[in-house]
Simulated assay, not measured.
Amino acid sequence: MPNTLVFNWKRLLTEGAVVVFSILLAFAIDALWDERKKNNEIREVLSLVEIETKTNLLDLERSIKRHEKIVAAIQTAHNEQSIASVISDAVISAEVFEPTTDALQTLISTGMLSAIDNVDLRIALIAVDGLAKDLTENEAVAVKFRDFARRRIASLGVKIYDALPESNPAFVDVEVLNLLAMRESEERNAIRSGQKLQAHLQSITVNLAALNKQ
């Protein structure tokens, strides 16, 4: 009888150990599966961030060129002391860069950013928003001065979209030219901010490409 009891206890302990091991194994498999799923999600978001960044770079390059075109037009206006030949670019056109950051915001808001081992890359990704806002602020001020110039022209009784004769006094109005000079300054600030953001995004693109290849 005692031997039978000992045998039963041994079997019970063995079976219990098997059950516990099976449960722990199941938990381990679930954890590995969850980790793998999470890593796949992070890789997918990082891939989207890379695509998003490249798209923003292309758009930003075009945006900077438009700012440069506006600056060139205002310079021509000052050289000629008239806006007659450049009214479209100097007084009508405006440029505002609007980056797409959905994937980047997802990366940051979900906490996936912490999965990136490269600390410099993490910091760079977080800094994108601030650099983009700097550019937006410069552009907003430039647009304000454009609007001031347009209001001045309107106050002279001129409709900005009309085909105006070259002798129109609005073309050579000193106040209009001064307002455009202030706009030019802000457009140049926008170009500098844009170039700073451009270099930043280019660096991020290189690092993301290397990371996504791993």
Results as ranks from 00 to 15, higher is better:
100 T>A: 12
70 I>W: 06
153 I>L: 14
138 N>Q: 15
124 A>C: 05
118 N>K: 06
168 N>A: 08
52 E>Q: 11
142 A>F: 01
158 V>H: 02
148 F>H: 10
97 F>H: 10
141 V>W: 07
40 N>G: 08
125 L>K: 03
176 V>F: 01
159 K>H: 10
159 K>Q: 11
59 D>N: 15
87 I>G: 08
13 L>V: 12
111 G>R: 07
38 K>M: 08
210 A>K: 08
213 K>H: 09
119 V>L: 03
177 L>I: 08
23 I>Y: 09
17 A>I: 12
128 V>F: 01
187 E>Q: 13
74 I>C: 11
16 G>C: 07
116 I>D: 11
125 L>V: 01
29 I>W: 07
76 T>C: 09
84 A>L: 02
191 I>N: 06
80 E>C: 06
117 D>L: 10
200 H>V: 03
192 R>I: 08
88 S>I: 13
2 P>A: 05
64 I>K: 04
21 F>I: 10
157 G>I: 03
41 E>I: 11
106 T>S: 13
72 A>W: 04
13 L>Y: 10
161 Y>L: 14
156 L>G: 08
196 K>Q: 13
207 N>E: 15
105 Q>K: 09
196 K>D: 14
201 L>G: 05
9 W>P: 00
10 K>M: 14
4 T>Y: 07
151 R>H: 06
104 L>V: 14
13 L>C: 05
75 Q>F: 05
149 A>K: 01
126 I>S: 14
126 I>N: 04
211 L>A: 02
25 L>Q: 10
102 D>I: 12
104 L>Y: 02
98 E>I: 07
194 G>S: 11
212 N>V: 11
33 W>Q: 05
103 A>F: 03
64 I>P: 07
194 G>K: 11
49 V>G: 07
